[in-house]
Amino acid sequence: MMENKIVEILQYTLRKGTGVEFHNIMAEISVPLHNLHGIDVVSYGNSLHDPDCYCLIRSFENEESMSSVLAAFYASSGWINGPREEIISRIENSLKTILNLPQKGIDGLRKP
């Protein structure tokens, strides 16, 4: 039997008019950097209802793994000297939700 994983859903309200730039930074710099750190980016992109709303979904083995992997990621020079400022400067508000889901549910959320 397959064990559940931890899924983190981040929802961002971006500064007006920055959604396209934000997505380009995510696609070209941030997501590849996540991948280099072994972070499973399940899905990401602008909301269908508003291009200045954004969602990032990441999956982790367990809560301890999520904490340690994200701590290492956000402390890395790749993040600090890379897309950090460009991303943070465009976020007006953010919400975080953590779920415990089976792999089948995670795969259903996965961006094709």
Rank of each mutant, 00 (worst) to 15 (best):
residue 58 R to K: 13
residue 12 Y to C: 10
residue 32 P to W: 11
residue 10 L to G: 09
residue 46 N to I: 13
residue 43 S to H: 11
residue 55 C to A: 14
residue 86 E to S: 11
residue 107 D to I: 03
residue 11 Q to I: 07
residue 52 D to S: 06
residue 109 L to M: 15
residue 30 S to T: 15
residue 94 S to C: 08
residue 89 S to I: 00
residue 7 V to R: 09
residue 35 N to P: 00
residue 65 S to K: 12
residue 99 L to V: 11
residue 94 S to D: 02
residue 106 I to P: 05
residue 15 R to S: 01
residue 34 H to K: 10
residue 108 G to T: 08
residue 43 S to C: 08
residue 72 A to F: 05
residue 70 L to P: 00
residue 7 V to W: 08
residue 83 P to F: 13
residue 36 L to A: 10
residue 81 N to R: 00
residue 23 H to C: 05
residue 2 M to G: 01
residue 41 V to S: 10
residue 80 I to C: 01
residue 91 I to D: 08
residue 28 E to A: 01
residue 61 E to A: 12
residue 87 I to S: 06
residue 109 L to P: 00
residue 42 V to L: 07
residue 88 I to M: 10
residue 90 R to F: 10
residue 86 E to K: 09
residue 96 K to A: 13
residue 92 E to M: 07
residue 41 V to T: 15
residue 60 F to R: 00
residue 38 G to Q: 04
residue 86 E to P: 03
residue 64 E to M: 01
residue 32 P to A: 04
residue 14 L to S: 05
residue 93 N to L: 09
residue 36 L to R: 15
residue 108 G to H: 15
residue 58 R to S: 06
residue 27 A to V: 04
residue 46 N to P: 04
residue 97 T to E: 08
residue 44 Y to S: 10
residue 25 I to H: 04
residue 74 Y to C: 05
residue 81 N to L: 04
residue 95 L to S: 15
residue 74 Y to F: 14
residue 65 S to Q: 14
residue 37 H to Y: 14
residue 26 M to S: 03
residue 101 L to P: 12
residue 55 C to P: 00
residue 101 L to S: 14
residue 11 Q to H: 14
residue 52 D to R: 07
residue 44 Y to R: 06
residue 27 A to I: 01
residue 110 R to D: 04
residue 96 K to W: 01
residue 36 L to T: 11
residue 31 V to Q: 05
residue 55 C to W: 07
residue 55 C to S: 02
residue 59 S to M: 02
residue 100 N to M: 07
residue 74 Y to Q: 03
residue 68 S to D: 10
residue 59 S to I: 01
residue 13 T to D: 02
residue 84 R to F: 11
residue 22 F to G: 07
residue 105 G to H: 15
residue 44 Y to D: 12
residue 34 H to F: 15
residue 23 H to M: 12
residue 25 I to F: 09
residue 14 L to T: 00
residue 2 M to C: 06
residue 78 G to H: 13
residue 11 Q to A: 15
residue 83 P to K: 08
residue 9 I to V: 15
residue 7 V to G: 11
residue 92 E to A: 03
residue 1 M to V: 07
residue 2 M to P: 10
residue 99 L to S: 13
residue 106 I to W: 12
residue 1 M to R: 03
residue 89 S to R: 09
residue 10 L to K: 07
residue 73 F to I: 00
residue 101 L to G: 01
residue 103 Q to S: 13
residue 71 A to F: 02
residue 40 D to G: 07
residue 24 N to S: 12
residue 17 G to N: 02
residue 38 G to H: 14
residue 93 N to T: 12
residue 64 E to G: 00
residue 26 M to H: 07
residue 11 Q to V: 04
residue 68 S to V: 02
residue 16 K to A: 14
residue 105 G to V: 09
residue 66 M to G: 07
residue 83 P to W: 12
residue 67 S to C: 02
residue 48 L to H: 08
residue 79 W to K: 11
residue 30 S to L: 12
residue 34 H to Y: 15
